[in-house]
């Protein structure tokens, strides 16, 4: 019996500033899938992720979440979605603990102990109580990424999660992503890294049509 896909995209087109980024995009995301969106800069990777999260209107097409039509801002969808965008949403005046606790209490909740554990795991154990403005770009990004260690969301949408993260950090995150998929969760991410270590990785390349036409 075929399973209902977690997320279905049908005939999706996106237009930005009178420029068509992609048309008639269609794919299914099953539970346990890891989908990497590839493509050159400006091919609409971030736009696609924002459309899926309901943060961007789309020109035409249909989205389905667990078989039902998905409308932006639906609480039942949002309660299962973890989205980490370009801007990580970290307040410079707040400490990593305060930043992460806010996120957790807006979603599934977590006690301070679990939050400290997640921050230690992502390598911020020595910076728990310093304001985020004194941390580096990579460390600030790690605060937001620490959410995935606490997350019980079904779908993770991660926009360039590995930007400014060091090699060891990337390996740890890949492991966490893999574990999430093994538990039946799904991940959609964009990255310019080669994610060869991830088992069962699916790849969707945007902007291919443009590349295939050599100087037409």
């Amino acid at each position: 019996m075929p399973n209902t896909p977690l997320l279905s995209v049908r005939q999706l087109s996106c237009e930005r500033e009178d420029r068509l980024l992609f048309t008639h995009l269609a794919f299914d995301l099953q539970a346990g899938d890891i989908l990497q969106i590839k493509g050159p800069n400006g091919s609409g990777k971030t736009s696609l992720l924002r459309i899926l999260a309901g943060l961007l209107p789309y020109a035409e097409g249909e989205l389905y979440w667990q078989g039902e039509a998905l409308h932006p801002g639906e609480p039942s969808f949002l309660s299962q979605l973890l989205f980490i965008g370009h801007a990580p949403g970290i307040k410079a005046e707040l400490t990593p603990i305060e930043n992460l606790l806010w996120y957790q209490d807006m979603h599934q909740g977590a006690d301070q102990h679990a939050v400290i554990q997640a921050l230690t795991r992502i390598g911020l154990g020595q910076f728990l109580d310093v304001p985020a403005y004194s941390l580096s770009a990579g460390q600030q990004r790690r605060i937001a990424l620490a959410r995935i260690y606490l997350s019980a969301h079904t779908l993770w949408i991660l926009d360039e999660p590995f930007t400014a993260i060091d090699v060891q950090g990337v390996a740890d995150l890949e492991q966490c992503i893999q574990a999430h998929a093994a538990q039946g969760g799904s991940v959609i991410l964009t990255s310019h890294h080669a994610l060869d270590t991830l088992a069962g990785l699916k790849v969707l390349t945007l902007g291919q049509a443009m590349e295939e036409v050599p100087h037409a």
């Binding site: 209490d105 599934q108 019980a152 538990q183």
Partner: peptide, 23 residues
């Protein structure tokens, strides 16, 4: 599959107030 336990609205409002106050 994952269970989804969302925090209550009162809790969410509480942490938002706390965060704004701190900021």
């Amino acid at each position: 599959m994952h269970k989804t336990n969302t925090t209550s609205l009162a809790q969410a409002v509480g942490v938002c107030i706390r965060r704004e106050f701190l900021l």
